[in-house]
Each structure stands twice: as C-alpha cells, then as structure tokens.
C-alpha cells in the first residue's frame, strides 16, 4: 500500500510542477545564463542577420563599456537615483505608515487605499500625467510652489532639476507599496509595551526609538533592499517623461541597456550592461545585509 502510494505521489508531483519548471527553465534561467555568454560575444545587427558573423571576443565588451563616458553617465545617474531616491521613498513610506497607524485616525481603510492607489496605476499613463504636472508654465507643481513664492522651476528641461523631478514621481508612485509593508510591521508592535512606555512618561521620540523602531527594523531592511533594486531598474519614467534628456541627465542603466540592445542592436554589449546591472544590485544588497548583521551583534 505504501510503496505504490509513494510512486503515485512522486509521479503526480513531477507532472504538476513540470510545466512551470519547464517554462522557468526555458524563459528565465536559460536567458539569464545566456546573458553571461552573450556578453562575451560581438553579437550585433550582422550576427542577427547571419549567425556566422558572431565572434567570441572575451571581456572586450566590458572593457569598452568601462571606457565609454555614456555608460559611466548612465551608471552615475542610476547611482544618484539609488542614493537620493532610497531615503526619500523609505522616509515617505514610513511617515505615511505612522500616520495611517495612528490610534486617533478615523476611517483608516479609506486613507490607506487612497495612498496605495498610485502603486497599481499604469506607470506609462501616470508618467504622461506627471510630465504635464511638471510643465514650467502651466503645470500644477510650479503653480503650488508659487503659493510659497518658489520657482518657477524648469523641471524636465534642466539637467539639475530633472533628477529630483523623476524621483518625486517615483516616490509618489511607490510609497504606498512600502507603506503597506511598514503597516504590517507596525501592527506587530505590542500595544501594551507602547502603553507601558507612555505611562512611564516616555515621549513621542523616545517611544519611536525604543519601542517602535526595534519592531519594524526587519521591515526597514526589506523595504530598503526592494527600493534599491527598483531604483536601479528605472526605465519607463525617463523613457516617457524626458527621453533620457536633457543632456543625457536621466539616462539610467536600464535605459542605456535598452538603447544599446534595441536601438543600436549591439546585443553583446547590451548583455554586458545587464550583467553589470545585476552585479551592482547584488553588491549593494550584500553590503547592506553585512552592515545590518554587524549592527545586530
């Protein structure tokens, strides 16, 4: 009885997972590894027409990229998004979570869903909307800045303002998602502990530091790692809002990869960009995990 049962289970187990595993293998793992191989070749429009034009060139794509000022420009732009965008998004998300979690807040579900809504909207559509919001003469953003006697700022037309403009849009689009993760963590803060601290005369800042922050520390790590990865992967935002301009100031690594691969058809070089992007994300995530582990000790 037991032996045929195990055999049937094994057979069913493999049959049920086989379609998904085959798809993951064919359309995810093979391409991911093929990127490594492709990045060592000079695959270009001629190889696309006839594979006999394909040559193995070792690390030359990488060497060329590291000598290409346009690649460094894209890399530094992405690094800027990570460096300034991550604290902005994490801070906004946590502030929003504290507000939504506030014990005096009424009609909580309504506010929660409104703050989350931008996250589910179509990125391209809202990027088109924000492009007009950022218009120098008749955009809503400069109009509001006018109330406090600021501006007008040429948001999308000047290389210095274009980065903050895109980051503002990205923050608006994504803070709701991270807010939900923070909210889940805040719900784990023991109410009794918070009450006890309050009765002991702990101030707002004291409670935040000693009761709330320790409880949400894992959520901070999760949100930071996710945000860094997403900041490295900005593409549609500059594609729609600035087309990479002005003066290449919003070309991200992914945007550079897209143009290298599908505008100039340098697929070998584009694959090298993809591999470098992956290494960047891995490196930053690893460093962060190490820092956190050292701090915990």
């Amino acid at each position: 009885m037991i032996v045929p049962q195990r055999a049937a289970e094994t057979r069913a187990g493999w049959l049920m997972s086989a379609p998904a595993l085959a798809a993951i293998f064919l359309f995810f793992l093979v391409p991911a590894f093929a990127s490594l191989f492709l990045s060592l070749t000079d695959f270009d429009i001629y190889a696309l027409a006839d594979l006999r034009n394909l040559r193995f060139i070792g690390l030359r794509n990488y060497a060329d990229l590291l000598h290409n000022p346009l690649f460094w420009n894209a890399f530094l732009n992405s690094a800027r998004y990570v460096l300034f965008g991550t604290p902005l998004v994490v801070g906004m998300s946590f502030a929003a979570a504290l507000l939504i979690n506030h014990r005096y807040l009424r009609w909580r579900p309504v506010w929660r869903v409104i703050l989350f809504a931008p996250y589910v909207t179509t990125l391209v559509a809202t990027a088109v909307v924000w492009r007009y919001l950022f218009n120098t003469e008749y955009g809503l953003v400069n109009w509001m800045l006018g109330w406090v006697a600021l501006g007008p700022i040429d948001w999308l037309g000047s290389p210095t303002a274009s980065t903050p403009a895109i980051l503002l849009f990205v923050a608006w689009k994504t803070f709701g998602y991270n807010m939900i993760i923070f909210l889940a963590a805040l719900q784990l803060v023991p109410r009794e502990l918070d009450e006890a601290a309050r009765l002991d005369g702990a101030g707002r800042i004291g409670r935040l530091r000693h009761v709330i922050l320790p409880a949400v520390a894992p959520a901070f790590l999760l949100v930071t790692v996710l945000t860094i990865a997403s900041m490295f992967q900005l593409f549609a935002e500059p594609y729609v809002m600035t087309e990479g301009g002005p003066a290449q100031s919003t070309v991200t690594i992914l945007y550079f990869m897209y143009e290298e691969g599908f505008k100039w058809w340098n697929l070998g070089s584009g694959a090298a960009v993809a591999v470098l992007l992956f290494l960047c994300i891995c490196a930053v995530t690893l460093v962060e995990l190490l820092l956190v582990r050292r701090n915990l000790r």
Partner: peptide
C-alpha cells in the same frame, strides 16, 4: 506532495526569485 527532488527545486526557485527579469531580456 512528497517527491524526490522537491527540496532541490525549492532552493533553486528561491535563488531564481532574487534575479531581476531584465538580466535575461536580450537573450530571451
């Protein structure tokens, strides 16, 4: 379901979920 290879598959999937999809976009 208990079947041989299940644990290996799960570990491979955990590793794979960390890889961003854009990495393999050009070969795909």
């Amino acid at each position: 379901l208990r079947f041989s290879g299940r644990v290996t598959i799960q570990w491979m999937l955990v590793v794979a979920i960390l890889v961003p999809g854009q990495i393999g976009m050009l070969p795909l």
